[in-house]
Amino acid sequence: MNMPWFKRRGPILELEQLQRRDQLVPPAALDLCPLDVQRMVVLDLETSGLDMRRDIVLSIGAVVIERGGIQLGDQYESTLLRRAQKVSESVLIHGIAPSELEAGEDPAEALLDLMEFIGDSPILAFHAGFDQRMLTRALKQTLGYKLRHPFIDIAEVAPMLCPDNRPRQNGLDDWCSHFGLQVLQRHHASADALATAELALILFSKARRQGVDSLEAMSQRLANWRKRQQAQFM
């Protein structure tokens, strides 16, 4: 029987959870691995709101891109245990019932499972800054773990690669509609992760035709693109 492990600071975890946390593999650095070989994890979080300092993660969806395709048999999905969660406007949008949150998975177990699923792979997300900050805070508060994985923002990749052929708005729905992708369910973590992965594959095909064939090259080009975007408003 595992006994709780008490620390003066940080979350209270059981010994087995501490061991799992300490065995998590560090992220691999972005390199020149070709896009059609690279393993990537596409992540989406549903949260109680948009305040990155106060709101919390309610559900997580993730899917793997590897060998140039979406590995439908390699997905992660979890609704976290959140007792007495208020039914906010955000909760109504993503449709997670209070009963689902009451029956959710222990947050420490869910986040350990997620990080084991991610492994050392880079993470893709749409509006990745939000997901990165929310996940970083959740991991720190729940596990005492510091997230170091590199994130690639598909919401930046899309307009960078399609400057002259893009929708008026820069939302996930807008880009999916632009490329004729069918999204069966929105504001659901797993469905949004899958839609983001499908969009990413289209964009990676465009990237290769533009001479960008690795996430390292993508990251470098994004950095230059951001500088040009900032210069336009100076």
Results as ranks from 00 to 15, higher is better:
residue 5 W to F: 15
residue 12 I to Y: 04
residue 18 L to G: 10
residue 22 D to Y: 02
residue 27 P to M: 05
residue 28 A to M: 11
residue 30 L to F: 10
residue 31 D to L: 11
residue 36 D to C: 07
residue 36 D to R: 00
residue 43 L to A: 07
residue 51 D to T: 02
residue 53 R to L: 14
residue 57 V to C: 11
residue 58 L to D: 01
residue 58 L to S: 09
residue 64 V to W: 01
residue 65 I to N: 06
residue 65 I to G: 01
residue 70 I to H: 04
residue 71 Q to L: 15
residue 74 D to Y: 02
residue 78 S to F: 03
residue 80 L to G: 10
residue 80 L to C: 12
residue 81 L to N: 08
residue 82 R to Q: 14
residue 93 I to M: 06
residue 94 H to F: 02
residue 96 I to C: 08
residue 99 S to R: 11
residue 101 L to F: 01
residue 103 A to F: 01
residue 105 E to D: 12
residue 106 D to V: 07
residue 107 P to I: 06
residue 111 L to A: 05
residue 114 L to D: 08
residue 121 S to I: 04
residue 123 I to V: 09
residue 123 I to E: 00
residue 125 A to I: 07
residue 131 D to Q: 03
residue 132 Q to R: 13
residue 132 Q to N: 11
residue 142 T to E: 05
residue 143 L to T: 10
residue 143 L to E: 00
residue 150 P to N: 04
residue 160 M to Y: 11
residue 161 L to Q: 05
residue 161 L to W: 02
residue 162 C to L: 13
residue 165 N to W: 08
residue 165 N to I: 05
residue 170 N to A: 13
residue 172 L to E: 05
residue 175 W to F: 02
residue 182 Q to M: 05
residue 183 V to R: 09
residue 184 L to T: 15
residue 186 R to T: 11
residue 187 H to K: 01
residue 193 A to S: 14
residue 195 A to K: 03
residue 197 A to W: 00
residue 198 E to R: 14
residue 199 L to Q: 07
residue 200 A to V: 00
residue 206 K to G: 06
residue 209 R to F: 09
residue 209 R to P: 02
residue 221 R to D: 11
residue 223 A to N: 06
residue 228 R to V: 04
